[in-house]
Write a protein that binds this DNA or RNA. Structure first.
Lengths: 132, 132
DNA sequence: CTGATAAGATTACATTTGTAAACGACATAA
DNA sequence: TTATGTCGTTTACAAATGTAATCTTATCAG
């Protein structure tokens, strides 16, 4: 499964389709026209480009189409994570975390939640070296 | 200070200039030709585009130029962080951390380092509510 | 059934980006 | 002085991306 390159604007479309598929184009258009300043024609173009890229598929439903993803959100997020980490941080995960921690102004509560996450991660480590 | 949009390829140039400025074009070219498969002409184009964008400046030095950044790394990284967090995670920092933790396969040692980071962050919180 | 409307397909245009080649000028070496 | 090499500037081209308009066709409503 080849992960197509998804542009910034196209991410917005993909997120909606991942979240709400199968979804009719009318709904995509209504939702995103609200959220962004794109016209329906712009959104239709983005949809068609994603079709061409093989990122989404469709089924006819009356006069309209309903769309579904052909690539998993998980895989796309993973690819984007990697690309971002490499491009901005040369792969230095510690720096990424440190930077986000510094810049995004986490509340104390969010910090504690993250600590839980790390603790849980550590426990998984103890229980299973690596099963995957 | 307006942060210009820096393309993926241009990030590679900027990182080198931030790290080693002032730096001669010859050195930029030598370093990046090794690291990437770009030709010297390609690299020269990227340098010129960054000049046009106002991201870097230069000083003549003999027949060649030495370049320096006009925008701070910190600001550019911040902008890119925000953009990435919004685009892929709708601003959900917890999801971002959770995702990177899951996908990037941190060692136990790295987890502990992160825990230190969070602990330090928490302490800062206790000492100073907010001085900035 | 007919006409209108809307949905999808196609076309448009400008800018940005990736990857370079070509050109002009200056410095250096013979 | 001349020729060559190198450095920065300008030009080139294709694809990708952002933002749409226009066209065609099928469905739906009256």
């Amino acid at each position: 499964m080849r992960i197509p390159n998804i542009s910034d604007a196209e991410w917005e479309i993909m997120k909606l389709i991942w979240k709400s598929h199968p979804i009719a184009s009318e709904e995509i258009i209504n939702t995103l026209a609200d959220k962004t300043s794109w016209s329906s024609r712009t959104i239709k173009t983005f949809i068609n480009r994603l079709l061409k890229k093989g990122a989404i598929g469709f089924e006819k439903s009356g006069r309209s189409y309903v769309y579904y993803p052909l690539v998993s959100e998980k895989e796309c997020v993973r690819a984007e994570n990697s690309s971002f980490l490499e491009r901005v941080y040369d792969g230095a995960l510690g720096m990424l975390f440190s930077n986000f921690l510094e810049e995004e102004n986490l509340s104390e509560k969010e910090i504690e939640k993250l600590q839980e996450l790390l603790e849980k991660k550590k426990k998984q480590f103890s229980l299973r070296p690596k099963e995957k």
